[in-house]
Amino acid sequence: MEQTLKNPEQNTELIIAGAGPAGISAALYAVRAGITPLILYKDGGALEKAKEIENYYGFPAPISGKQLYENGLVQIQALSVPALQEELLSIEYNGEYLVRTAFHNFHAKAVILATGTKRNTLSLKELKKYEENNISYCAICDGFFYRQKEVAVLGNGPYALHEAKVLEPLAKKVTILTNGKNPEFSVSELGSISIEKRKIVSAKGDTSLSNLELEDRTLFPLDGLFVALGTADSTDIARKLGLFMEDNHILIEPDTSTALPGLFAAGDCTGGLLQISKAVYEGALAGTKAVEYLQQQKREKEM
């Protein structure tokens, strides 16, 4: 379903991160309001993995999450909404938004975060003990505190490599811990960054995390651990942008706006009822309000 842009590095008015119920609904309502957005997405997330959905309006028989997800992609394709299947790495704000994916950079005046919320974590009960002590989920936010220290990034994909690259000029040593998996990036991209493939079996330390025990019982010493499992979701991006968070969810206004101008959030990343119906509603509202914001900015510029 992916569409190709003539100029992938182009400026665009509105970018929607995510192609689930919230993201697709946002796109549909943005188009109806007069602006065609660019959709960036990795996959269907939790929806695509749902075996059967039988509590959604208009479907008398159960439908698989995968089929509903694909229906959404067909719907935006019919409206000629450009959609690129590229992993989102980061969003930066400096009056306008710079959106980085694994392959391109995009500039936008408004952004809707709708990539859901991450459900994959490392199953080590000991890690909870150190959540506020040497464990971070944001290299841009906390890298400064680990200058000239030895740190590790947990993950094996482009997102983990991106976080490691942020830390590389700050830390004394950076290692990507793949936890038994092969890295999903080229070794030539590493620079001075090291790779450790052995599985992690335990976390150790007194009041702060100081060692990870590997599968062969050797200890891996570290001053800080940055978690970058899977792909960057909306809450990862929100942390880096300094948005208000509560219980790992983005705090939004009733109109889905956030603390940053032109940045909206919808779907599971905002918490509450984690259901398709709620995501569709918030997506529709976010798409409408994002267009209103852009139109207001245009009027003010013309005055």
Rank of each mutant, 00 (worst) to 15 (best):
R147P: 00
K149N: 01
L222G: 05
E163G: 00
K149W: 03
Q148G: 03
D236E: 09
E253L: 08
K197A: 13
V166M: 11
K240G: 14
E184H: 11
I252M: 09
R217H: 15
I176H: 04
T175M: 13
S202V: 00
P183I: 12
A238F: 10
A238Y: 09
Y146S: 00
A160N: 05
L209Q: 04
D142C: 04
S202A: 13
L243D: 11
G242S: 13
D223R: 03
L177R: 04
S192I: 10
F145W: 08
G205H: 01
G242F: 13
S202P: 03
I252S: 08
L225C: 03
E163L: 06
V153E: 06
C138A: 05
I140T: 11
R217G: 03
I237G: 10
I252H: 10
G224F: 09
T218D: 15
D206R: 09
G155N: 03
V151M: 06
F144I: 09
K199L: 03
P183D: 14
R147M: 07
K204Q: 13
V151T: 02
T235V: 14
N182Q: 14
I252F: 11
E253M: 10
S194G: 10
S202R: 12
K165H: 13
L209V: 00
E213M: 15
T207Y: 07
A203W: 10
A228L: 11
E213T: 09
H162F: 14
V187K: 15
A228T: 09
Y159H: 08
L190A: 11
C138M: 07
E213P: 01
K149Y: 03
I193K: 14
M245L: 15
V166I: 15
G157V: 01
S188V: 08
I135Q: 03
K199V: 00
F226K: 00
L212W: 05
G230P: 05
A139W: 06
A203I: 04
I135R: 02
M245E: 09
I195M: 11
F144D: 08
V227G: 01
E168L: 14
T178G: 09
T207K: 13
G205T: 00
G224L: 05
V201C: 06
N211L: 11
F185Y: 11
I200Y: 12
Y146N: 00
K204L: 15
F144K: 07
F185N: 07
P169F: 14
L167A: 07
L214R: 02
L222C: 07
I135H: 03
Y137M: 00
R217I: 02
P183C: 14
V187T: 14
F220D: 05
A171W: 10
K204P: 05
L219I: 02
N248H: 11
L167I: 08
I135V: 09
H249W: 10
Y137S: 00
F220R: 04
L154D: 00
C138P: 07
L170D: 09
K173I: 06
D223Y: 05
P183M: 14
L219R: 07
H162K: 10
I135K: 01
E189G: 05
E215F: 04
R239Q: 11
S192E: 15
